[in-house]
Write a protein that binds this DNA or RNA. Structure first.
Lengths: 341, 341
DNA sequence: CTGTTAGCGCTTTCAC
DNA sequence: GTGAAAGCGCTAACAG
């Protein structure tokens, strides 16, 4: 295979000046044309665009942002990408930004609020137009930086705490409550809970609290717990289910911290010949696609992650200036009956 | 409307100059200190840092990048976030970038190469240090822009085509071949193929071609196909499996375009009482976590998406200048026997 | 070790 | 409609 000969890899050094010279116009005219802004004679535009094409000119947005003091960047901070819910939020963000000339800059904290602080500081140095961040759990320094940045800040996923500026999400506490209430109504009485580490997942904790409230109102409670170390996963859900099934108290329903865990529970039941929901009811949270495709659709609570991402962008751009009042947008949730509970 | 005179809520714009004045030093000294570069007296540093803290100064990276002609941004282009493999690649990218002061700027093409062209153009205008892009399937204009940008370009996932600069991934064709060979060795003879739309997924096509090669070498072939419209999904896998099971030719193995589809196949079998692998063997591709947690672990080919992301960054930063020769990094794959084939 | 002086490439008045 | 000139905030020489 022959290597094609290439010109020395000089970074394209074409600038407005080159285009201006080549087209015989002023730099500001080139600038106006590149941004479709201000009045320009059609004939001039043609001439300039030709020079642009001929040279392969790509405007330098770094310089543009400096000059206009407007970066057209949107910072997005999520804890992880392993948990499918966050990619889904990002898709919503992308969809909403599509067509605008804003670029999302995405960062992952790994559920570490100290790292989050570093990340937010770094993001802020790009002078983004807005920051969308998952959750309310920040260090005081992060909170202060976001608060004082002056730009629009959206705290996503959750609306159970007062936001810095805007909150977009659902009430996890109420979702938990609804879950408990639903299962009680369906006649279940002996509940188990299979969860994962709460330290990193405040929302799972809120749901748990909601579930307990609902059960308490019915003078019931959770008879057995199995909490996995580390993050939620199908494997952990399987193990915790096995553990709950092995313990003495006989359960008629297991509530899971989320669908990943619940799918693991379904797999355990399928493998062990436990019939759902007659022998054991299984109930998740999130309404992931995978749950709907199981041999029996998973009973769960649907949240709308895509909508959260999209709405966050919409709200952030609704008003460029941060108003005096904070706002909260509830994207809602919905019990999905399924067939496992 | 009332004419209200209100001071515009100006973003507190502390600049190097302010810090320099306040600390009684020159601007460049502040700059050196903020970047931990060059020699600085400890006493001076203290004084400057105090001013920084007092004012809440955050350096403006836009200005910094313009001045140093070095953006510290890495463009990352993936087709989707719905398919879990891409978030996994992004995690690898993040992991590799962590600790450096480079920020990934992520864009999603939705498998649309025209949109990809627009995205790449936009990315290039940020003068990124490198671009990591999934696949080889670009418009001529995209190819040209990437090629002439002069920066390091990594084409990820796939190494079955000559790259612009660097390719990091595995040979999907060889993976397909290995799959076919493996199944033939295990004694299967009557194959079905359940796939999704190839138009958007060149790599699935490559694997298919490899499978056919292997079967042909054993004087075998694929007896029945079921191709879903649209992207791969568990649901589509289920449907295509049902379709293949309903057709007259009796199959002893179904090869799926990937694990999502194969998991759908497993669900169909579980629901229909088809025993795997005795009644029907099921074989996927990717080695997703979910496959390992099924009641029976899914037989599949493991690819390493995290490694692809990480390696891509490492290779891109190995040499800042693009060398004359293209390079290809094979991250490999591995047959995972599982229990469904 | 530290300060001064030019820009980086573009946008933005503000004349013309 | 268009151009000249003045920055945007920072970094990079280069003296001191």
């Amino acid at each position: 295979m022959q290597q094609k000969q290439r010109l020395p890899a000089r970074k394209s050094k074409v600038t407005v000046k080159d285009i201006a010279l080549r087209a015989g116009v002023g730099e500001s005219t080139v600038s106006r044309i590149m941004r479709n802004k201000g009045p320009v004679a059609e004939e001039t535009r043609q001439r300039v665009m030709e020079a642009v094409r001929a040279t392969g000119y790509v405007p330098n947005r770094i310089a543009g942002s400096l000059a206009s003091l407007d970066s057209h960047l949107v910072g997005v901070v999520v804890p992880s990408l392993s948990n499918i819910v966050f990619p889904e939020v990002l898709q919503g963000v992308h969809a909403a930004l599509h067509g605008s000339d804003y670029q999302p800059v995405i960062s992952i904290t790994g559920y570490d609020i100290d790292l989050e602080e570093t990340i937010v500081r770094g993001l802020l140095s790009w002078k983004p137009a807005a920051i969308l961040i998952a959750g309310f759990d920040h260090t005081p320094a992060t909170h202060r930086m976001l608060s004082e940045s002056g730009i629009r800040i959206v705290e996503m996923m959750d609306i159970d705490s007062p936001p810095i500026d805007i909150a977009v999400g659902m009430s996890h506490r109420r979702a938990g409550y609804a879950t408990g209430q639903y299962l009680v109504e369906r006649g279940y009485r002996r509940f188990g809970y299979a969860g994962h580490d709460w330290k990193a997942d405040r929302r799972a904790r809120l749901r748990y609290d909601g579930i307990c409230d609902a059960l308490r109102n019915a003078e019931l409670g959770i008879a057995a717990h199995a909490i996995a170390e580390g993050p939620s996963s199908v494997g952990a859900g399987r193990e915790m289910t096995a553990r709950l099934c092995a313990q003495p108290a006989k359960l008629d329903a297991i509530i899971y911290s989320n669908d990943d865990m619940a799918v693991g529970g379904v797999f355990h039941c399928l493998g062990a010949g436990i019939r759902m929901p007659d022998d054991l009811a299984v109930f998740g949270f999130n309404g992931l696609d995978i749950g709907r495709e199981l041999p029996q659709p998973l009973s769960t609570v649907r949240s709308n992650r895509f909508l959260i991402g999209r709405t966050s962008v919409e709200k952030a751009f609704e008003t460029p200036e941060r108003p005096q009042t904070r706002s909260i947008v509830d994207t809602g949730f919905e019990i999905f009956p399924g067939a496992t509970a």
